[in-house]
Nucleic acid binder design. Structure first.
Lengths: 342, 342
DNA sequence: CTGAAAGCGCTTACAG
DNA sequence: CTGAAAGCGCTTACAG
């Protein structure tokens, strides 16, 4: 039988209000009383009832801000859907969600967007931080003023953000290498990188090399170019590579530019070339179902959005299961048949 | 702003109790009043607050029985863990979970186990039904007496069970074929079937053939044997097949017996043989990390257990999102690197 | 620094 | 057939 605040209050000879104050460190309470109450609660293994708390919290809501560089980036569509799904489930529990979208990577703009969310009185921020000291400072000052901050999809070092929801990008790269090795352990691989500046892209490449070196000595990397996540540039560099190195029979695409790569393969290659890439935005799905992409490694964006919101809520109601601050989704390998109904 | 029972009561000029009775068809209410209330609720888009309902329900619990043929079958371990995780989250909402385990496939025993759960006053049953008319009758009689029944992992036709949580096994087979075709589009495949009696195993094979026929004309099925889900029998039939058909370079394992197949491959084959199978019980994981299995198609048992419990709860509180009665998990392709931390 | 009380929205005996 | 009231467990103004 679960313990309630009422029982603790009786045992400690205080009122329920006082127990609440002690348990949540709301202050304005004699230290010895606080200690006594906490001890009793601990001994009894007190776990606050989430339903009751939610109901009570209906009067002052938890407002979560979600800030994403999602404009013109369909990857985030599913992430937003996931966040909205979580919000829908938690609306009954007094949770509000404000989604703020921006375009691309501009530090100054990101700071401004955060300020805009702060004006709307958010109690928690989930966002995809750009790797810059200004952002770190911003995070820390929010934490100081009692606003919870978690990072989504990308993390940032040395800040006081309380948790990160994302994926292990190095593992993504390792799995990509495993898939490539399975398809052809003697592949001649062209690597089409995205942006050198993105940690996630660098990790996908280092994870790839780890596995290639340790497990697939027959694989030969015969080109390493960069698309800057641009489809036309990707087309161009792929075309040139295919011309210069006709032995290429496998392309590993690390970032965006997938349609460009596939177009170049269609037009300039005479033999079968396997393509392995990341994520499954609509464009990618189409290229999978036409057989132009052999496999894609997905990072469960829907789950990321869903988890970001629910985790903020769990932290808010003090229910975060002491899980590590790194909450990582699995990397999911998908092939053509994964997208087909049977 | 969400509508509450109180507002509906005021608009309908009745008490909150009456609104509750009308909305949940508890009877003992004048039909015209009931209709009036329901109309108002609909117009206002009333959605009951789950937190309040959960809190109130704390006094009379929802007891869910989970019955599985899980003894000596490690596949169900994760499913049970998932169910328990859901139960833990919902304990605060007045949900109780009773797990009843049995060994293998005996219809009479399954009926008895159900009766045992009924004696414990379950309000809902989630179970893996055996395909038999006795079971269908049992299900229907439970539904008649107001006990919700859903099927987990296997479904059963023509019964009144309200939902099925599982996976699309035909799609599993299609994906397996896709993986095999990716590894080697000219493979000489030995199919090691599990049990002919299990619909799931038959579907995995028919899905496989669909894709092989339509997409991989170069693949040659050169053997089709059955393990009866027994490791020793699997060892034996594999050994014989490898002896008779030395060209075999790919094995598709549909059911259990995986360790037997791999042992036979280790001992009796001189060349590389790729193995593709289903699920990731500990034995399978070990064979993956030693490279003896190339890929496995997983059906997310943890999610199945988790979803079974939460779905019973959602149905109980009338929140089941009108989702189809078929709640299917994705088939997840896993390779060696999927199981390694980076 | 602490207590008594109201309130979150829903459900359920208990009267009538 | 219907209403008034108590209760689920937690939080929070309001007094003192």
């Amino acid at each position: 039988v679960p313990v309630t605040i009422k029982e603790i209050a009786e045992l400690a000879n205080v009122s329920r209000g006082t127990v609440d104050r002690a348990l949540h460190g709301r202050g304005g309470i004699r230290p010895d009383v606080e200690k006594r109450i906490c001890t009793i609660a601990e001994q009894l293994g007190y776990r606050p009832n989430t339903a009751a708390r939610a109901l009570s919290r209906l009067r002052n809501k938890l407002v979560i801000g979600l800030l994403l560089p999602s404009i013109d980036n369909p990857f985030f569509d599913d992430l937003i859907l996931g966040a909205q799904a979580a919000h829908k489930e938690l609306a009954d529990h007094g949770v509000e969600l404000i989604v703020e979208q921006m375009h691309g990577f501009n530090i100054q703009e990101q700071v401004e967007r955060i300020d805009r969310l702060l004006e709307k009185n958010i109690n928690a921020l989930a966002f995809t931080p750009f790797d810059d000291s200004q952002i770190i400072e911003k995070i820390n000052s929010m934490i100081e003023s009692g606003i919870n901050v978690i990072t989504v999809n990308s993390d940032i070092n040395d800040s006081k953000r309380t948790a990160h929801v994302g994926v292990d990008f190095k593992k993504s790269g390792r799995i990509a290498a495993g898939v490539i090795g399975l398809i052809n352990p003697r592949a001649n691989v062209l690597i089409v990188g995205g942006s050198q500046k993105l940690l996630s892209h660098r990790q996908r490449i280092s994870g790839f090399y780890e596995v290639i070196h340790s497990r697939f000595p027959g694989i030969n990397v015969c080109g390493n170019v960069v698309s800057n996540d641009d489809h036309f540039l990707a087309f161009d560099v792929t075309r040139k590579s295919l011309y210069n190195r006709p032995e290429i029979d496998m392309i590993y695409i690390v970032g965006d530019g997938i349609t460009g790569v596939c177009a170049a393969v269609r037009e300039f290659s005479s033999h079968r070339i396997d393509v392995v890439c990341f994520d499954d935005v609509p464009h990618t799905k189409r290229l999978m179902s036409s057989g132009q992409i052999s496999a894609t490694i997905c990072q469960q964006p829907f789950q990321q959005g869903y988890t970001a919101v629910t985790h903020c809520y769990h932290q808010f109601i003090g229910l975060a299961d002491n899980e590590s601050e790194h909450i990582l989704m699995d990397n999911i390998v998908k092939i053509r048949e994964s997208f087909e109904d049977s």
